[in-house]
Design a protein around this nucleic acid. Structure first.
Length: 480
RNA sequence: GGCGUGUUCGUCUAACGGUUAGGACGGAGCCCUCUCAAGGCUUAAAUACGGGUUCGAUUCCCGUACGCGCUACCA
């Protein structure tokens, strides 16, 4: 069997869209699964939409997500270049071949005339296709007009009869009658190929075996197949992925939330979570497992299990998955993700060992990386104010007396471990003839400023005797 | 308008003709507990509609409805 070669072919119009990430991911997974090659190709045939820096941005987002390409811009294989604007001569050559073979023709219609044709068709409620006005111009005449410098495009000569049928890997058999197909423009008047010309030429030239792309390409696939036939080339396998949707069911768009991969990265989502989530939008392993690493996805992915219907991008599920991936990520790795934010907040003096333990405490109670810096800030700073709700609930008239007693015991404690601080507290409660809760809650408030957080005695142990006692004295002072 | 394509809990989905239609997120409740989480358990919640085919349809066929995509010298 021939080796699998797939490609992801974005246009450099800005950032990597999450829908694009999924397309790239599925291509990548299939390639890795079959020890094939994953190619990145830049489709910049529309000069008007080009955005500066977009290619670099696309690549960095892909790399962040852990999707490495085997061939592409800056990583030459045998079939480059991998940027379409650098392959113009090739398209020109093949377009010429098509014209000479009578499979394509020069069209001199102006945009205005085309517009009129469409309006007329719309008024008559017919399909809005080109009326083939230039299709029968004699070759010699057409060539003469081209030579004379008359503006023109090249159109494919779609057979008037028959139909194209192909087996989509996801949708099974799809059939479209040639009669309703447009005489698609192949080469624009600026000499650049259209998408339709460029994909076919490049996918063939680059030896692509499987074309996995978004569902929006399904209707134009017959034209592509016709082109393969015109050239006498092997047709690759096609798989058209269902779309990613907004909560209201429309095609996922910027207006209704973040769509750029870099947005999710910036908001503190782990690449592991985003990849896991995006993979499951349209694919599943067939059992009830949901937490998957990239390697596990590679091991189990198959196009057969990709669904047909569009999937709504459900942020809550992503949040849950992020939480799950954070929980299993080693503290040291989390620390590196969190470090820039800590630096911003000025928490640079705390030793790594301390921070790792804090992360250990916090990692199963947060959903997104920045939560490490907002969730329990008492790990990083002494509290200056005390939560009002906690004060009214847990700070009674006797509390100062109790806390003072506890303070004394803690000052004299032989060691300041979780076990010892807890023992001393329970002992004190017993002496006072009250429940331990009557001391624990005020102590939590006094030492952390809030009434939530991990196991109190472990918090105290980590804070250390000095910090704990300092905070207790401060609390007693301010809450007299 | 034309063409294509899709339709299982609110959401992501499982069930390749026979299931009490399963799981997960989110919701509700309970348990655990020094709080908040996490975790465990329980629970509500779906086969768009109408015809066929079949002993039997979520599953196969046809139609309807609705959604979505395409209909550019954009991809």
């Amino acid at each position: 069997m021939e080796p699998v070669r797939v490609r992801f072919a974005p246009s450099p119009t800005g950032y990597l869209h999450v829908g694009g990430l999924r397309t790239a991911l599925y291509n990548y997974l299939l390639a890795k699964r079959h020890h094939g090659s994953f190619i990145l190709r830049i489709e910049d045939t529309d000069q008007t939409r080009k955005v500066e820096g977009a290619v670099e941005n696309l690549i960095s987002s892909l790399e962040w997500a852990g999707i490495e390409f085997d061939e592409g811009p800056g990583r030459d294989g045998a079939v480059g270049p991998y940027v379409q604007s650098q392959r113009l001569s090739m398209y020109k050559k093949f377009a010429r071949e098509l014209v000479d073979a009578g499979k394509a023709y020069y069209c001199f219609c102006t945009p205005e005339r085309l517009e009129q044709v469409r309006e007329k068709a719309a008024a008559e409620k017919r399909a809005l296709v080109y009326d083939r006005h230039c299709r029968e111009i004699p070759a010699a005449e057409a060539q003469a007009r081209v030579d004379a410098g008359e503006p023109h495009v090249v159109r494919m000569k779609v057979p008037l009869e028959g139909e194209v049928t192909f087996e989509d890997q996801i949708r099974s058999k799809v059939t479209i009658a040639n009669a309703i197909l447009d005489d698609q423009v192949l080469v624009k008047s600026d000499g650049f190929p259209t998408y339709h010309m460029a994909v076919v030429v490049d996918d063939h030239a680059m030896g692509i075996t499987h074309v996995i792309r978004g569902e929006e390409w399904l209707p134009s696939t017959p034209k592509h197949i016709l082109l393969y036939q015109f050239f006498g080339w092997n047709v690759p396998k096609f798989a058209h992925l269902p779309l990613l949707l907004n909560p209201d069911g429309s095609k996922l768009s910027k207006r209704q939330g973040d769509v750029a991969v870099e947005d999710y990265r910036a908001k503190g989502y782990l690449k592991e979570a985003l990849v896991n989530f995006i993979a499951f939008l349209g694919w599943n392993p067939g059992d009830t497992r949901e937490i998957f690493s990239m390697q596990e996805l590679i091991d189990e992915f198959s196009i057969d299990r990709v669904g047909k219907s569009g999937a709504i991008f459900n942020l809550e599920k992503l949040q849950w998955l992020n939480q799950q991936h954070i929980r299993v990520k080693p503290e040291g790795e989390l620390l590196e993700l969190v470090r820039p934010m800590f630096a911003e907040k000025g928490w640079t003096r705390l030793p790594d060992e301390y921070l790792k333990r804090v992360i250990g405490f916090l990692k199963d109670r947060i959903t997104v990386i920045p939560d490490f810096g907002t969730e329990c800030i008492f790990f990083y700073e002494d509290p200056v104010v005390f939560e009002e709700k906690g004060r009214t609930k847990n700070w009674g008239p006797d509390t100062p007396k109790h806390m003072a007693l506890l303070l004394e015991k803690y000052e004299a404690a032989a060691e300041f471990t979780a076990a010892e601080t807890e023992r001393l507290l329970r002992q004190t409660a017993e002496e006072l003839g009250i429940g331990a809760g009557k001391l624990i809650h005020p102590l939590r408030l006094a030492s952390t400023g809030v009434s939530l957080g991990p196991s109190l005695f472990h918090v105290l142990e980590l804070l250390g005797r000095e910090t704990t006692l300092r905070r207790l004295r401060y609390a007693l002072e301010t809450m007299k």
